[in-house]
């Protein structure tokens, strides 16, 4: 365990050094991250204004709070490794990582954390600007904030494990784009990105509860805003843990099979 902590701190250090080299790419990535919720926020605010101030139970101020919190969650739950593995495998770069006496997932996890740490101040600045522009209304409670932090940590963990499992598809197919598109389209509808889930038709809400996406995106926001009952919050945490366990199992299976498959591709 101490070895693993030592590795994470060294990998974080290296990743930080490296991320500073890619300032421009990071800035562009960050702009994309901010623009998306801002668009939904603008649209839903307009809709609320034109329909007498509310949509369902959401006022314009609620939408502002929802999407600004969503931005924070999306910053901490980003993962991009599914776009990389096809290249790592085809180019044989994975070989170098497989020769190390440590599972390659740790490298990706540390790199992922390093990015989130470095860009946190930028995300925080964006949040402050958006608060000033859109004037969110939300009651800040201690249990809301603590629940949010807990749910956010589990959400980030889940998003990383599931995203990494999706990345493993690159062992079997070169049509990675199609798989990733499917994943992100599903996430778009069922995670509360396009609209708060309680505004969706019942069938979609049920689907969202069954699928993992809500538990890695909108759930922490709902906890913060106090829109869930105590028992729903507990069930949510339970489902987050369940999905983390399932995706960890999927990662273990996909990796062990994938590595065998890798040898067939020739590396």
């Amino acid at each position: 365990m101490t070895g693993l902590i030592g590795y994470y701190s060294a990998q974080l250090r290296t990743s930080l050094v490296l991320q500073f080299q890619y300032r421009v790419a990071m800035a562009i990535w960050m702009i994309g991250l901010i623009i998306e919720p801002v668009i939904y926020l603008a649209v839903w605010t307009a809709v609320a204004d034109s329909s007498g101030g509310t949509v369902g139970t959401f006022t314009a101020g609620d939408f502002a709070a929802y999407y600004i919190l969503l931005l924070i969650v999306q910053h901490f739950t980003q993962i991009w490794h599914m776009w990389e593995y096809d290249y790592l495998i085809r180019q044989g770069i994975l070989s170098g990582r497989m020769l190390r006496p440590i599972h390659p997932i740790h490298r990706d996890a540390a790199e992922n954390m390093a990015y989130k740490v470095i860009m946190a101040p930028v995300a925080a600045a964006a949040v402050i600007v958006l608060i000033l522009i859109f004037q969110p209304t939300v009651a800040i409670t201690l249990e809301g904030v603590l629940g949010f932090i807990g749910a956010l940590i589990l959400a980030a963990w889940l998003a990383f494990m599931l995203g990494w499992a999706v990345a493993m598809a690159a062992f079997w197919t070169t049509r990675i784009m199609a798989i990733n598109q499917m994943y992100f389209v599903a996430m778009f509808f069922f995670s509360g990105q396009i609209a708060p889930l309680e505004l969706l038709p019942g069938v979609l809400q049920t689907a969202a509860n069954i699928l993992p996406f809500r538990w890695m995106v909108s759930f922490p926001v709902e906890v913060f805003m106090g829109r869930l009952s105590g028992s729903d919050v507990l069930i949510g945490f339970g489902l987050q843990l369940l999905w983390i366990a399932l995706s960890t199992g999927l990662v273990a299976l996909a990796w062990s099979r994938g590595v065998r498959r890798y040898s067939a591709v020739g590396g």
Binding site: G6, A10, T14, R100, P101, I102
Partner: peptide
């Protein structure tokens, strides 16, 4: 920097 990382990887 890469060497230092190897130090941690190989403990």
């Amino acid at each position: 920097d890469s060497f230092d990382l190897n130090r941690a990887i190989y403990r």
